Simulated assay, not measured.
Amino acid sequence: MDAPSNINSVITHSDSDVAHWLTNDTRDERFLDNIFSELCVRVRQAGIPVKRATLHLLIYHPQWLGARIMWADGMREAEIGRVDYDVRERSEFIGSPANELFDGATEVRENLERDPSLGRKHALYDEMRAKGLTDYVAWPLYHTLGKRHMVTFATDRSGGFEDAHVSGLSKLLPVLALVSEIRMKNRLARTLLETYVGSHAGELILAGATRRGSGTTVRAAIMICDLRDFTRISDNWPRDDVIDLLNDYFDAISEPIARHGGEILKFMGDGLLAIFPLSQPTACANLLQAVAEARQAMAALNESNGQTGRAPLNYGIGVHVGDVMYGNIGSRTRLDFTVIGPAVNMASRLEALTKQLGRPVLLSRAFADFVDRDFALERVGEYPVRGFSDPIELFAYHG
């Protein structure tokens, strides 16, 4: 008769140790998956026979609704999976513990040893039974302002979790919620900055570069791209079609830029501004590789659009190289992290000339001098450029 009391006493004491560690000793760990893995190991050492655990988080990423951190006994590190926005319409969600919790349940508990016909019906429970798990519990993890995430624990112990095990785990939830919310907000801040200003600018802002007028001079290759006839398209196409078109166009142009080390600083309606800092010795070659791949992607997009009767999308790209001021510009309360300077103006003027000269990509002589002969550049000639006193020697690039 004394065994349950002893178990309660041991688990209560050990839970306090785990909670103390979670509260006080995780300050220097940036990544939540590492904290969650260590938590599960410590929970097992405390006498709670957790065999498998998951942490499900709504992450508000542009591409994914959420993420799942999964730990199992014997794993060296947790496994992280991403969850698509349409998951709630799929069978993996419908009828799942997550479905129940996000519909308002405060706990989902399932005895996996009993006859499956008597329990909940979902593929997840069958998968856990197949892995020898005997008991499962899931709880909402409450963050501030009503945001609900989810944590689950499962065991392979014969007879499942004891009440003391479940009680011990539940006592850790408030601390886990606080620790996970801090990491979530840090990651969300980083994600938002990467999404809206780019990864390099985001890192500078997170490091404290938020004062108006602060910045530095950067020598870089500058690329400006603009879509042709967008006003006509937006006036005549349905709104949703215009948004889809812009997203497809920006995917085609942007992904090669990011892949080759460029930094997209801003989208301007149907255009974009990107730089390739010359601190990278192959920056100019990287830019041309990105342009070549972007042109291939645009050709594929136009072919796909042509099959649905849409007219091809035309675009212009202007490229120059020079010193730019890179930093915070704006009003006292609203700043933009961007680049300015004559070199940016030149790239913009060259982009405008692409339409006049019928060349999709125009490069300045200054940029061409940085490029290997391996890249076949066609000399177009010297042309006056608005805002600059002397004609500029231009080159076309066909990728």
Rank of each mutant, 00 (worst) to 15 (best):
D25S: 13
G327H: 11
E77R: 08
S117Q: 13
D226Y: 03
R219A: 04
P342E: 13
R190P: 00
S5N: 09
V324Y: 09
V242W: 15
V137T: 15
V361F: 01
Y383N: 03
V197I: 15
F93Y: 15
R228E: 09
P97W: 07
P174F: 13
V319K: 01
H20Q: 13
R114L: 11
G198F: 07
S14Y: 01
S5F: 13
L335A: 02
G198K: 09
A201K: 08
T134W: 11
L22Y: 02
D84I: 03
A177W: 10
P384Y: 04
L124Y: 08
S117W: 08
G261R: 11
E110L: 05
L288N: 03
F375E: 08
V218R: 12
A352E: 14
I224W: 00
R228N: 15
E181P: 06
R349S: 11
W237H: 15
H13N: 13
E351W: 07
R44S: 10
Y85I: 00
A207M: 05
N302S: 08
F276R: 06
I11K: 08
I257D: 00
V291K: 03
G387I: 13
L124S: 05
G316C: 09
S234C: 11
R27D: 13
M75W: 10
G159T: 05
M70I: 14
G74I: 01
R42D: 00
G271T: 05
L377W: 14
K355N: 01
V108L: 02
T191A: 08
A154H: 03
V41F: 09
N8H: 12
A368D: 11
I264D: 05
G202D: 01
P281E: 10
D86H: 14
E181W: 05
V43W: 05
D369T: 15
G271W: 06
T54M: 06
F153H: 07
F375G: 07
G198N: 07
I257C: 01
G341C: 05
Y142A: 14
I11F: 03
L193E: 02
L172E: 05
V175G: 02
C40E: 11
A209Q: 15
V197A: 02
Q63Y: 04
A3R: 14
L362T: 07
V319A: 09
H122K: 00
E100K: 14
S180A: 12
M325Y: 10
I48R: 04
G202H: 00
F367K: 04
L57Q: 03
A368Q: 11
E393W: 02
A220G: 08
N99P: 01
T333D: 15
T195A: 14
G330K: 06
I182S: 10
S158R: 14
Y249S: 07
L133R: 02
P256Y: 03
V166H: 02
D73M: 12
D336C: 12
Y136E: 09
